[in-house]
Design a protein around this nucleic acid. Structure first.
Length: 286
DNA sequence: AACGGATGCAACCGCATGTCC
DNA sequence: GGGACATGCGGTTGCATCCGT
């Protein structure tokens, strides 16, 4: 007996999501929370596979997602983590708050890989492509099998780049298991700072990258809540001008999300929540 | 302006893993 | 312990957009 398909293939829609479908999914999850993805399409009135709903939510609709290209700092962190973890994108994503495994995977394949190759660095081994043999710095193959739940994956790390500071691969694994969900973004934010601080500057690749002058701040300014904007609203009650000057573009990025589900309602007072709802309505009417 | 190749990203697929009974 | 099912993960694909000719 073969395994049942995750959903009834007949009558299941595929391809890009429409705004209407997004709205249904968001409404459902905001009302009911995330549970039992298999049942979500039916309950939400969607002709989609549960898997597809989960993917759409985690990769696109989730409110805590950052948008736009990865910053220099994030890119460096991805490279560092990839050197230690290999293609374990979800583990890597867990260290970058607001980023999804899919996003990082795509960014790696489309940007970072090419950048590394251009720099003469093998994106798989993180070693120089035409590296001369150096007996004092032989790469050490760290079998990752135990940490990787049986995956036959070997991360090749040169001895000079092995972690001597606070974060080790096993620690990464341990922490990521506890911070793999969106709900732990605060923790993972701190952890990503920690991981960045622990870059081993002896790594030829990392030291090269770290030499870049004027690196942007680790925390993307767009990630901060526009507290000033809320002050203006409280004082002036002028929502439209605030919207026009871009103060609330971050809300557009978040689309229409579940502030209650994510504890954001603890961050906002009643006026702010009202503003949020007004903006949401305005955007829907556009 | 039109065409074709390159690029980037959202979404799908199949397998692995976790959990429940 | 093992089967069934739900969820998670990573590789891959398809398509829209960009860009050069």
């Amino acid at each position: 007996m073969g395994r049942q398909p995750c959903c009834d293939k007949l009558g299941v829609k595929k391809g890009p999501w429409t705004a209407e479908e997004d709205k249904k999914l968001i409404n459902f999850i905001l009302t009911n929370g995330q549970c039992c993805w298999r049942a979500v399409p039916k309950l939400a009135g969607l002709r989609r596979c549960g898997k597809s709903c989960r993917l759409r939510w985690t990769n696109y609709l989730r409110p805590d997602l950052k948008r736009g290209l990865l910053s220099e700092a994030e890119e460096k962190l991805v490279i560092d983590l990839h050197a230690r973890l290999g293609n374990r994108w979800s583990k890597i994503a867990a260290r970058l708050p607001g980023r999804t495994d899919n996003e990082i995977k795509n960014h790696w394949n489309t940007h970072i890989k090419k950048k590394l190759l251009k720099m003469g660095i093998d994106p798989v081994t993180h070693e120089p492509l035409n590296k001369e043999e150096n007996p004092t710095d032989q790469p050490i193959q760290e079998s990752d099998q135990n940490k990787n739940n049986g995956h036959q994956q070997v991360v090749v790390v040169p001895e000079s780049t092995r972690v001597t500071a606070a974060v080790t691969s096993s620690e990464l694994d341990n922490s990521s298991t506890s911070s793999s969900s969106a709900s732990s973004s605060e923790n993972s934010c701190n952890e990503s700072n920690l991981a960045l601080e622990t870059f081993n500057k002896n790594d030829p690749l990392l030291s090269c990258l770290l030499e870049a002058k004027d690196a942007p701040p680790l925390i993307d300014s767009s990630w901060e809540l526009p507290v000033k904007s809320f002050d203006n609203i409280n004082n002036n009650n002028n929502i439209t001008s605030l919207w026009d000057d871009g103060s609330f573009n971050w809300l557009l990025d978040c689309q229409d999300f579940g502030i209650h589900d994510f504890g954001f309602d603890n961050c906002f007072n009643d006026v702010e929540l009202e503003v949020f709802n007004t903006i949401y309505d305005m955007e829907n009417k556009k």
